[in-house]
Design a protein around this nucleic acid. Structure first.
Lengths: 175, 175, 175, 175
DNA sequence: CATGAATGAGCGTTCATTCAT
DNA sequence: CATGAATGAACGCTCATTCAT
């Protein structure tokens, strides 16, 4: 799976071949099929496991209430993760923008993501935002936008400055 | 090209076939090759022409100075365009996140986009932002994030509310 | 036809396209079909006309009897023609060695060639060769071999010396 | 490869299809590509392997000196081989006369052939020929001419008589 | 008679998947 | 459970040929 991730991320799903992945992993092509029913399921498994790990790691709260510190902590953790997982994120974006693939993933993706959305909704609500629903969407849109811009041009995108910009912005809103 | 756009957008570049596009367009497979040297060039042409049109249409200023009204006008136009061009945008995102394809497009994309970035940089500078460079990046990241979220889930994404949210935010900053 | 010859000779029949030939000739693709029913017939016509011209030009005798001088004259003329028609000869060899094409040409080729064989048979017979039939075959095989060797490597094949070698050989036999 | 040879020889390289070769060989089309990277490489491999085998088999001398007996033996072996390998030879001639293909083969061909040319040059030199270089060229041109005439019309070409004719000729020269 | 856009059959090649060993 | 040869459906692309203008 490690090799598959690297290859999918660098060449794109359709342009990567099972043969390539097998060779890079040091196993025979046939062996890949002992672990994954199909190329699509390999991708799916790959994306999910990473996503679940990430989600867990990123969980801003482990007790049910998101504090302001946890909120900012999460933003900083996001950035760190982003830098360390460029490859995955590029793959992720390329996958979710492939209509067919999206369909196959979206239900499960939603299950991973929705609890976070709920928690953030509560967080914004408790800090006096009049439309927490929209606020969450706005917040995640902003993060997604930053991620995609970083992933597409990691050399030039001023990630640190943007991070500070985001934090200062929410500091203003949350105080 | 219209059919190609629809098909590429709905099925993804690699999953779409020339035969399909030809049939949908009511011409023979071979005829496609009278107009486009290859599948890749069809895609490229498609993306570029739409992008150039859009860029021109979206130009916030036609005199050299971006006013505050033009800035907000541009945001509103963006939203309108976004709604009307879901298909294209889905294709666009799926294309720029495909590593190989990106390489083939990036130089030319940059040529289309960079003038806008420059203008916006000047705009933010003249309105007293201390780091206009970062501000532009932040602004475009936000727009990209909104776009991608809308495109991936147009039914549920509260585009209107988000638009108002963005406008109110920049009103606060620009007054 | 001139352009077709050049192109067929340089790229081979199957690798050359009608489009290419039309463009090189300064006419439209469709026009080619006003003069030649098909690509194959263009080739056929080409080969034949050149072959007939050549045959006529090469005719060692115009009165029915081949003299020794005419015989040697013909050898010299052959060489001259060979140098001037490398292109055609390469095409010719590539064509007659293509089984399918051969079948389509062989009957007509034979009609062009056989009178010469007959004349040469008589020539050798009258000069005391015990097996004129074999002698003619030997003679033409020798010429063909020289031609093919020259055509395949015109820079290095010592055509002049070989010509002298052949002439001296037959001088020995014919005196 | 056996089937490929037969098919290439009988239909010509460009007119033969991989599908046909696969079917004749009793394997699937895709399997051909497990053994040969491309149609061109299949052809190349085919020609080379046969050529190398032949060259080795035809080697007139195994000790460094070509004797007169070995010389005549080689001519006789040539004839035998020629009769048994009509197919290959037809393919061979059709290949070397295809301009493009020639380019791709010529360097390697030369490496196979040139040692024989050298040996023959020495042979003719040691038997008192004033211009061994030309003599070798003449000799091989004669053989090539015979081969091509035989291959193009095996039913009628008097191969045995020609062989005797050649041998008698060189007996005259070498005594 | 010239044109060149349109056609579509056909081919080389790829690659996910299977399965006998 | 590992292997990798075999499979064949599928696709991009070519090009001889046609025909309406």
């Amino acid at each position: 799976m490690k090799e598959a991730l690297a290859i999918f991320a660098n060449k794109g799903y359709h342009t990567s071949t099972i043969d390539e992945i097998a060779r890079a992993s040091g196993v025979a092509k046939g062996s890949v099929y002992n672990y994954f029913e199909s190329k699509e399921i390999l991708l799916r498994t790959l994306v999910f496991e990473t996503l679940e790990e990430t989600a867990e790691m990123m969980d801003p709260d482990h007790d049910g209430i998101v504090t302001v510190e946890e909120f900012f902590g999460m933003i900083r953790k996001s950035k760190k993760w982003l830098v360390e997982n460029r490859d995955f994120l590029r793959l992720y974006f390329s996958v979710i923008t492939q209509p067919k693939v999206l369909k196959m993933l979206e239900k499960d993706l939603w299950e991973i993501i929705s609890p976070y959305i709920e928690k953030m909704k509560t967080f914004f609500k408790e800090h006096g935002f009049s439309d927490p629903e929209t606020e969450v969407r706005f917040f995640y849109a902003l993060l997604d936008g930053i991620e995609i811009n970083y992933v597409l041009d990691p050399e030039n995108f001023p990630l640190d400055k943007i991070e500070e910009r985001v934090i200062r912005y929410y500091e203003g809103l949350l105080k």
